[in-house]
Amino acid sequence: MRLISSSAEETREIAAAVAGVCRSGDTVLLSGEMGAGKTVFAQGFGAALGVREAITSPTFTLVNSHPADGLTLHHADLYRLDRTSEIADLALAELAEFDGIVLIEWGEVTADDVPGHLAIHICPGDPDESEDRREFELSSTGERWVGRWDRLRERLSIFAEESC
C-alpha cells in the first residue's frame, strides 16, 4: 500500500489511522533514512493510542515504554546497534506479548525475527516539489494482518497515491 503525506500533520494522521487498527501483541517496523519522519510518525502513533507523555526518539535509551490506554507502547530505536546479539538483548518479541505494541525505528534489520509484522517505509519525495512531502510504503507478513488490511486501506484511502 503506497501513501503520500504532504506535511508532518498528515504523517501524524496516517500514524493515527494505523494505530487505530493495531492491537495488543502487534509489532510495527519503521524504516527510512535520518529525517524521513519516523519519530513524527511515532508521536502520532502514540498519541492515538493514548500516550500522554512526550515521545522522543529512543536513540540512546534503545527502548522507551509509554503507558497508553489499556496497554503499553514500547518504542525502540535500533540505529545505534551494531550486532545481532544487541538486538536479542532487547527481547522485543517478549515486549509485545504482555499487553504491548512494539514500534521499532530502523526496524528493517530485525524483520526476519518478527513474523507477522507491519512494515512501514518512509521516504522523502521529490525535494523540488515540496520539502515536507513523504512517500509511505506499507506491507505486512504472516496471517496477523490479513483480516485488518481492508480496514487499514479504507482508513488511509485519502492518502493513497493515485498514480500507482
Partner: peptide, 18 residues
C-alpha cells in the same frame, strides 16, 4: 545463555547509505 543463533554484525544497508 544464548542458544538461538550466533552473534553477527547487523547488515546495515540503509544506515551505510546514509
Amino acid at each position: 545463555l544464548y542458544l538461538r543463533r550466533p552473534d553477527a554484525e547487523i547488515n546495515w544497508e540503509t544506515r551505510e547509505v546514509r
